[in-house]
Protein backbone atom coordinates (compact mmCIF):
# COMPACT_ATOMS: atom_id res chain seq x y z
CA UNK A 1 0.00 0.00 0.00
CA UNK A 2 1.22 3.43 -1.04
CA UNK A 3 1.20 5.19 2.31
CA UNK A 4 2.78 2.20 4.05
CA UNK A 5 5.61 2.11 1.56
CA UNK A 6 6.12 5.85 1.72
CA UNK A 7 6.32 6.04 5.51
CA UNK A 8 8.62 3.07 5.87
CA UNK A 9 11.39 4.49 3.70
CA UNK A 10 13.75 7.04 5.21
CA UNK A 11 14.63 10.55 4.16
CA UNK A 12 16.27 13.10 6.41
CA UNK A 13 16.54 16.69 5.10
CA UNK A 14 19.16 16.59 2.33
CA UNK A 15 19.10 12.78 2.18
CA UNK A 16 15.75 12.09 0.57
CA UNK A 17 17.08 9.49 -1.89
CA UNK A 18 15.00 6.49 -0.79
CA UNK A 19 11.79 8.50 -0.83
CA UNK A 20 12.61 10.09 -4.16
CA UNK A 21 13.29 6.73 -5.81
CA UNK A 22 10.07 5.25 -4.53
CA UNK A 23 8.03 8.23 -5.70
CA UNK A 24 9.71 8.26 -9.10
CA UNK A 25 8.82 4.61 -9.57
CA UNK A 26 5.21 5.28 -8.59
CA UNK A 27 4.59 8.27 -10.84
CA UNK A 28 6.53 7.34 -13.96
CA UNK A 29 3.53 5.80 -15.77
CA UNK A 30 1.35 8.86 -15.25
CA UNK A 31 3.50 11.86 -16.11
CA UNK A 32 5.21 13.24 -19.20
CA UNK A 33 8.47 14.50 -17.71
CA UNK A 34 10.43 13.94 -14.53
CA UNK A 35 13.45 15.95 -13.48
CA UNK A 36 15.57 16.68 -10.44
CA UNK A 37 17.53 19.81 -9.55
CA UNK A 38 20.68 20.72 -7.64
CA UNK A 39 18.95 20.26 -4.29
CA UNK A 40 17.25 17.00 -5.12
CA UNK A 41 13.68 18.23 -5.59
CA UNK A 42 11.75 15.81 -7.77
CA UNK A 43 9.59 17.66 -10.30
CA UNK A 44 6.99 15.74 -12.28
CA UNK A 45 5.15 17.37 -15.16
CA UNK A 46 1.92 16.32 -16.74
CA UNK A 47 0.68 17.95 -19.96
CA UNK A 48 3.64 20.36 -20.23
CA UNK A 49 2.45 21.97 -23.44
CA UNK A 50 -1.25 22.06 -22.68
CA UNK A 51 -3.18 25.32 -22.53
CA UNK A 52 -4.69 26.40 -19.25
CA UNK A 53 -3.56 27.31 -15.75
CA UNK A 54 -0.23 25.94 -14.62
CA UNK A 55 -1.07 24.25 -11.35
CA UNK A 56 1.56 23.09 -8.87
CA UNK A 57 1.08 20.49 -6.19
CA UNK A 58 3.77 20.47 -3.50
CA UNK A 59 4.59 17.94 -0.82
CA UNK A 60 7.87 17.55 1.00
CA UNK A 61 9.79 14.30 1.04
CA UNK A 62 11.99 14.90 4.06
CA UNK A 63 11.30 13.91 7.65
CA UNK A 64 12.85 14.88 10.98
CA UNK A 65 15.67 12.57 12.06
CA UNK A 66 18.87 12.42 14.09
CA UNK A 67 22.36 13.22 12.85
CA UNK A 68 25.39 11.49 14.34
CA UNK A 69 27.78 14.22 15.47
CA UNK A 70 30.19 12.39 17.74
CA UNK A 71 31.45 8.96 18.77
CA UNK A 72 32.40 8.52 22.40
CA UNK A 73 35.35 6.41 23.51
CA UNK A 74 33.01 3.60 24.54
CA UNK A 75 31.44 3.55 21.07
CA UNK A 76 28.19 5.28 22.02
CA UNK A 77 26.96 7.79 19.44
CA UNK A 78 26.21 11.43 20.16
CA UNK A 79 23.45 12.89 18.00
CA UNK A 80 21.47 16.06 17.32
CA UNK A 81 18.05 16.46 15.77
CA UNK A 82 17.86 17.50 12.14
CA UNK A 83 14.56 19.34 12.06
CA UNK A 84 12.47 19.97 15.16
CA UNK A 85 12.24 17.06 17.60
CA UNK A 86 11.16 17.22 21.22
CA UNK A 87 14.01 15.35 23.00
CA UNK A 88 11.49 13.89 25.47
CA UNK A 89 10.08 11.53 22.82
CA UNK A 90 13.45 9.94 22.15
CA UNK A 91 14.28 7.92 25.25
CA UNK A 92 13.97 4.15 24.94
CA UNK A 93 13.25 4.06 21.22
CA UNK A 94 14.86 1.88 18.57
CA UNK A 95 16.60 3.44 15.62
CA UNK A 96 18.36 2.38 12.47
CA UNK A 97 21.71 4.06 11.96
CA UNK A 98 23.64 5.17 8.91
CA UNK A 99 24.20 3.87 5.40
CA UNK A 100 24.85 0.36 6.70
CA UNK A 101 21.49 0.37 8.53
CA UNK A 102 22.78 -0.76 11.90
CA UNK A 103 20.26 -1.37 14.68
CA UNK A 104 20.55 0.84 17.71
CA UNK A 105 18.69 1.90 20.83
CA UNK A 106 18.49 5.26 22.58
CA UNK A 107 19.52 4.48 26.14
CA UNK A 108 18.98 6.10 29.50
CA UNK A 109 19.84 5.47 33.13
CA UNK A 110 17.54 2.85 34.77
CA UNK A 111 14.85 4.19 37.05
CA UNK A 112 16.38 2.34 40.02
CA UNK A 113 19.53 4.41 39.91
CA UNK A 114 17.88 7.77 39.36
CA UNK A 115 17.46 10.23 42.18
CA UNK A 116 13.77 11.10 42.69
CA UNK A 117 14.36 14.63 41.43
CA UNK A 118 15.96 13.33 38.23
CA UNK A 119 12.73 11.61 37.19
CA UNK A 120 10.97 14.95 37.16
CA UNK A 121 13.43 16.47 34.72
CA UNK A 122 13.29 16.08 30.97
CA UNK A 123 16.43 14.58 29.48
CA UNK A 124 18.30 16.97 27.23
CA UNK A 125 19.61 15.89 23.87
CA UNK A 126 23.19 16.08 25.22
CA UNK A 127 22.40 13.42 27.82
CA UNK A 128 21.09 10.92 25.30
CA UNK A 129 23.12 8.51 23.18
CA UNK A 130 22.64 5.67 20.71
CA UNK A 131 23.95 2.23 21.66
CA UNK A 132 24.69 -0.07 18.70
CA UNK A 133 26.12 -2.79 20.94
CA UNK A 134 29.72 -2.15 19.93
CA UNK A 135 32.75 -2.63 22.18
CA UNK A 136 34.60 0.59 21.53
CA UNK A 137 35.07 3.69 19.39
CA UNK A 138 37.06 1.80 16.76
CA UNK A 139 34.28 -0.71 16.16
CA UNK A 140 31.71 2.09 16.03
CA UNK A 141 33.77 3.98 13.45
CA UNK A 142 33.79 0.95 11.19
CA UNK A 143 29.98 0.98 11.15
CA UNK A 144 29.08 4.65 11.16
CA UNK A 145 30.67 7.87 10.03
CA UNK A 146 30.04 11.35 11.41
CA UNK A 147 27.17 13.10 9.65
CA UNK A 148 25.23 9.90 9.00
CA UNK A 149 21.60 9.69 10.04
CA UNK A 150 19.58 7.65 12.52
CA UNK A 151 15.88 7.07 11.83
CA UNK A 152 12.91 5.84 13.80
CA UNK A 153 11.93 2.29 12.89
CA UNK A 154 8.15 2.57 13.25
CA UNK A 155 6.06 0.21 11.10
CA UNK A 156 2.95 1.40 9.28
CA UNK A 157 -0.17 -0.10 10.86
CA UNK A 158 -3.88 0.52 10.70
CA UNK A 159 -5.74 0.38 13.98
CA UNK A 160 -8.80 1.53 15.89
CA UNK A 161 -11.57 3.12 13.86
CA UNK A 162 -9.97 3.91 10.52
CA UNK A 163 -6.75 5.22 12.03
CA UNK A 164 -3.20 4.88 10.79
CA UNK A 165 -0.03 4.81 12.84
CA UNK A 166 3.30 5.51 11.14
CA UNK A 167 6.38 7.66 11.28
CA UNK A 168 6.87 10.60 8.92
CA UNK A 169 3.18 11.08 8.07
CA UNK A 170 4.39 14.70 7.94
CA UNK A 171 4.65 14.80 4.98
CA UNK A 172 4.52 11.42 3.29
CA UNK A 173 0.75 11.75 3.45
CA UNK A 174 1.14 14.81 1.23
CA UNK A 175 3.41 12.85 -1.11
CA UNK A 176 0.81 10.08 -1.27
CA UNK A 177 -1.91 12.60 -2.14
CA UNK A 178 0.18 14.12 -4.90
CA UNK A 179 0.96 10.69 -6.34
CA UNK A 180 -2.74 9.82 -6.42
CA UNK A 181 -3.70 13.15 -7.95
CA UNK A 182 -1.14 12.82 -10.73
CA UNK A 183 -3.17 9.87 -11.95
CA UNK A 184 -6.11 12.14 -12.76
CA UNK A 185 -6.82 12.84 -16.39
CA UNK A 186 -6.72 16.62 -16.71
CA UNK A 187 -6.36 18.98 -19.63
CA UNK A 188 -4.09 21.68 -18.14
CA UNK A 189 -0.43 21.50 -17.08
CA UNK A 190 -0.18 19.87 -13.67
CA UNK A 191 3.19 19.85 -11.97
CA UNK A 192 4.00 18.06 -8.76
CA UNK A 193 7.02 19.16 -6.77
CA UNK A 194 8.22 16.64 -4.23
CA UNK A 195 10.41 18.98 -2.26
CA UNK A 196 13.47 18.52 -0.08
CA UNK A 197 14.52 20.09 3.20
CA UNK A 198 11.22 21.51 4.37
CA UNK A 199 11.99 20.57 7.96
CA UNK A 200 15.15 22.67 8.13
CA UNK A 201 13.63 25.89 6.82
CA UNK A 202 11.43 25.39 3.74
CA UNK A 203 14.58 25.11 1.66
CA UNK A 204 13.58 23.17 -1.42
CA UNK A 205 10.22 24.70 -2.27
CA UNK A 206 11.36 28.12 -3.45
CA UNK A 207 13.95 26.59 -5.73
CA UNK A 208 11.34 24.25 -7.23
CA UNK A 209 8.86 27.08 -7.71
CA UNK A 210 11.47 29.17 -9.49
CA UNK A 211 11.74 26.41 -12.11
CA UNK A 212 8.01 25.75 -12.36
CA UNK A 213 6.61 29.30 -12.35
CA UNK A 214 3.08 28.18 -11.50
CA UNK A 215 -0.10 30.25 -11.65
CA UNK A 216 -1.41 28.53 -8.57
CA UNK A 217 0.00 26.16 -5.97
CA UNK A 218 -1.67 23.73 -3.61
CA UNK A 219 0.55 22.62 -0.74
CA UNK A 220 -0.30 19.19 0.63
CA UNK A 221 0.70 18.63 4.21
CA UNK A 222 0.37 16.60 7.37
CA UNK A 223 -0.41 19.05 10.16
CA UNK A 224 -0.63 19.10 13.95
CA UNK A 225 -3.76 17.78 15.61
CA UNK A 226 -3.99 18.26 19.34
CA UNK A 227 -7.50 16.90 19.93
CA UNK A 228 -6.26 14.95 22.93
CA UNK A 229 -6.83 14.93 26.71
CA UNK A 230 -5.28 17.88 28.49
CA UNK A 231 -5.77 20.28 25.59
CA UNK A 232 -8.54 22.88 25.74
CA UNK A 233 -10.79 22.75 22.74
CA UNK A 234 -9.60 26.13 21.50
CA UNK A 235 -6.05 24.81 21.28
CA UNK A 236 -6.77 21.70 19.21
CA UNK A 237 -5.58 23.28 15.97
CA UNK A 238 -7.18 20.42 14.02
CA UNK A 239 -9.18 17.31 14.93
CA UNK A 240 -8.93 13.80 13.51
CA UNK A 241 -11.88 12.58 11.47
CA UNK A 242 -13.33 16.00 10.71
CA UNK A 243 -11.89 16.21 7.23
CA UNK A 244 -8.85 17.89 5.70
CA UNK A 245 -7.72 21.14 7.29
CA UNK A 246 -7.40 24.34 5.29
CA UNK A 247 -4.92 26.96 6.45
CA UNK A 248 -5.83 30.63 6.54
CA UNK A 249 -2.61 31.73 8.19
CA UNK A 250 0.52 30.37 9.82
CA UNK A 251 3.94 31.74 10.67
CA UNK A 252 5.07 31.59 7.06
CA UNK A 253 1.99 32.43 5.04
CA UNK A 254 -1.38 34.06 4.75
CA UNK A 255 -2.98 31.91 2.09
CA UNK A 256 -4.64 33.54 -0.92
CA UNK A 257 -8.08 34.58 0.41
CA UNK A 258 -10.18 33.93 -2.75
CA UNK A 259 -8.63 30.49 -3.11
CA UNK A 260 -9.40 29.55 0.48
CA UNK A 261 -12.97 30.74 0.01
CA UNK A 262 -13.36 28.62 -3.10
CA UNK A 263 -12.07 25.52 -1.37
CA UNK A 264 -14.52 25.86 1.52
CA UNK A 265 -17.39 26.50 -0.88
CA UNK A 266 -16.48 23.50 -3.00
CA UNK A 267 -16.23 21.20 0.03
CA UNK A 268 -19.64 22.39 1.05
CA UNK A 269 -21.08 21.80 -2.39
CA UNK A 270 -19.62 18.29 -2.68
CA UNK A 271 -20.48 17.38 0.89
CA UNK A 272 -16.88 16.76 1.87
CA UNK A 273 -16.26 17.44 5.56
CA UNK A 274 -13.53 20.05 5.93
CA UNK A 275 -12.12 22.08 8.81
CA UNK A 276 -10.18 25.30 9.19
CA UNK A 277 -6.75 24.86 10.73
CA UNK A 278 -7.41 26.71 13.96
CA UNK A 279 -3.93 27.80 14.86
CA UNK A 280 -1.31 30.09 13.34
CA UNK A 281 1.85 28.35 14.60
CA UNK A 282 4.25 26.46 12.36
CA UNK A 283 5.06 27.01 8.71
CA UNK A 284 5.04 25.09 5.46
CA UNK A 285 6.53 25.28 1.97
CA UNK A 286 3.63 27.59 1.08
CA UNK A 287 5.61 30.45 2.66
CA UNK A 288 8.41 30.13 0.12
CA UNK A 289 6.18 29.27 -2.80
CA UNK A 290 4.03 32.37 -2.32
CA UNK A 291 7.03 34.70 -2.32
CA UNK A 292 8.99 33.25 -5.23
CA UNK A 293 9.69 35.77 -7.99
CA UNK A 294 6.62 37.97 -8.52
CA UNK A 295 4.41 35.89 -6.21
CA UNK A 296 2.17 32.84 -6.41
CA UNK A 297 -1.39 32.19 -5.28
CA UNK A 298 -1.24 29.49 -2.63
CA UNK A 299 -3.48 27.32 -0.47
CA UNK A 300 -2.54 24.65 2.06
CA UNK A 301 -4.60 21.50 2.45
CA UNK A 302 -3.47 19.28 5.28
CA UNK A 303 -4.33 15.94 6.81
CA UNK A 304 -4.52 16.28 10.61
CA UNK A 305 -1.91 14.14 12.38
CA UNK A 306 -1.45 13.63 16.09
CA UNK A 307 2.10 13.39 17.55
CA UNK A 308 3.94 14.72 14.49
CA UNK A 309 7.74 14.92 14.69
CA UNK A 310 7.75 11.85 16.95
CA UNK A 311 8.39 8.15 16.27
CA UNK A 312 4.70 7.38 15.87
CA UNK A 313 2.13 9.77 14.44
CA UNK A 314 -1.56 9.01 13.98
CA UNK A 315 -4.04 10.09 11.32
CA UNK A 316 -7.48 9.17 10.07
CA UNK A 317 -7.92 7.55 6.66
CA UNK A 318 -11.15 9.48 6.32
CA UNK A 319 -9.29 12.79 6.35
CA UNK A 320 -6.74 11.46 3.89
CA UNK A 321 -9.45 10.37 1.46
CA UNK A 322 -11.37 13.59 2.07
CA UNK A 323 -8.30 15.63 1.12
CA UNK A 324 -7.93 13.60 -2.04
CA UNK A 325 -11.58 14.09 -3.00
CA UNK A 326 -11.52 17.81 -2.33
CA UNK A 327 -8.41 18.48 -4.39
CA UNK A 328 -9.58 16.20 -7.19
CA UNK A 329 -12.83 18.14 -7.45
CA UNK A 330 -10.98 21.42 -7.29
CA UNK A 331 -8.72 20.44 -10.19
CA UNK A 332 -11.75 19.37 -12.20
CA UNK A 333 -13.42 22.72 -11.51
CA UNK A 334 -10.37 24.52 -12.81
CA UNK A 335 -10.80 22.81 -16.14
CA UNK A 336 -14.20 24.34 -16.56
CA UNK A 337 -13.15 27.86 -15.70
CA UNK A 338 -12.50 30.36 -18.39
CA UNK A 339 -11.43 33.27 -16.23
CA UNK A 340 -8.24 31.63 -15.15
CA UNK A 341 -5.89 32.85 -17.87
Amino acid sequence: MLLAQLTEVNGAPGQEGEVRNLIREQIEPFVDEIKTDALGNLIAIKNPRAIGPKVMLAAHMDEVALMIVGIKNNGMLEFRPIGGIDPRVLVAKTVIVGKKKINGVIGAKPIHLQRPDEREKALSIQELYIDMGVKDKEEAKRLVSLGEIAYFTTKYEEFGEGKVKAKALDDRVGCALAIRLLQEDLSFPLIAAFTVQEEVGLRGAGVATYQIKPDLALILEGTTASDVPGTDEHKHATSLGKGPAITFMDRAVITHPPLVKELFALANEKNIPVQARRNTAGGTDAGQIQLTESGTKVAVIAVPCRYIHSPASVMSKKDYDGAYELIKHYLRCLEEREDFQ
Binding site: A38, V69, R80, S145, L146, R203, G206
Partner: peptide, 24 residues
Protein backbone atom coordinates in the same frame (compact mmCIF):
# COMPACT_ATOMS: atom_id res chain seq x y z
CA UNK B 1 38.04 17.17 9.79
CA UNK B 2 34.46 16.08 9.26
CA UNK B 3 32.09 18.76 10.47
CA UNK B 4 28.53 17.43 10.90
CA UNK B 5 25.99 20.27 10.73
CA UNK B 6 22.42 19.26 11.55
CA UNK B 7 21.31 22.91 11.60
CA UNK B 8 22.58 24.29 8.34
CA UNK B 9 22.05 28.06 8.79
CA UNK B 10 24.69 30.60 9.66
CA UNK B 11 27.05 30.59 6.70
CA UNK B 12 26.93 31.84 3.13
CA UNK B 13 26.44 28.24 1.94
CA UNK B 14 22.91 28.36 3.29
CA UNK B 15 22.12 31.42 1.21
CA UNK B 16 23.89 30.32 -1.97
CA UNK B 17 22.10 26.96 -2.08
CA UNK B 18 18.59 28.27 -2.62
CA UNK B 19 19.17 31.06 -5.14
CA UNK B 20 17.08 30.82 -8.33
CA UNK B 21 16.86 27.19 -9.45
CA UNK B 22 19.20 26.02 -6.69
CA UNK B 23 22.98 25.62 -6.47
CA UNK B 24 25.01 22.57 -5.46
Amino acid sequence: SLDPSPSPGGTDAYAIQVVQAGVA
